[in-house]
């Protein structure tokens, strides 16, 4: 009856330097989204938007971020994400970056299914970017972790290159 319906926005964090130097956590992304909504939509926007908003998933190696919002706030979130210009880098400064929206889904499972498909196409390019063997194995592990769905566990074989 009164069940809040949500939308999950999957975005990719893009910044110039390919190497992962910055420590981006869920809290950092949450604060960035909230600040940009406050700047664009003011007190009213924050009041409507904040309940039900959360950062559900973040993968630093593949740079995937999944933000959840209520269904009626989707337009606000989707239109505010392009305005994020920088994120704090954990050392007091800020590094320039932006979020590229990849996919909007109605549930986490739907987003995950899409992410698996996306990763299958993008994994070869990602591996090329990694310089050391240790980074490659870390990258592979994080992708496998992200594609595990509770109902049907993916085995390593399906994601192998």
């Amino acid at each position: 009856m009164v069940r809040f319906k949500h939308r999950y926005v999957l975005a990719e964090l893009v910044f110039g330097n390919d190497l992962l130097v910055y420590n981006v956590t869920q809290r950092v992304v949450y604060a960035a989204v909230r600040d940009i909504i406050e700047q664009l939509h003011g007190g009213y926007g924050i009041g409507l938007f904040t309940p039900g908003m959360s950062v559900k998933y973040i993968n630093e190696y593949t740079r995937m971020v999944m933000v959840r919002c209520r269904r009626e706030n989707l337009k606000i979130l989707a239109s505010a994400i392009p305005f994020i210009k920088h994120l704090p880098d954990g050392k007091g400064g800020q590094f320039p970056c932006f979020l590229r929206t990849l996919h909007v889904g109605g549930s986490i499972k739907a987003c995950q299914k899409w992410l698996v498909q996306h990763n299958r196409q993008v994994l070869p390019t990602l591996l090329l970017r990694c310089t050391s063997e240790e980074e490659k194995s870390r990258m592979r592990k994080s992708i496998f972790d992200s594609t595990i769905v509770k109902e049907e566990p993916w085995t390593e074989g399906k994601n192998d290159t």
């Binding site: 009164v2 924050i46 009041g47």
Partner: peptide, 18 residues
């Protein structure tokens, strides 16, 4: 207070949906 404002708005809009 402008910080209290957002709590009032979010709580009030929640109450409205019910």
């Amino acid at each position: 207070d402008s910080t209290l404002r957002r709590y009032v708005i979010s709580n009030a809009t929640d109450l409205m949906t019910f």
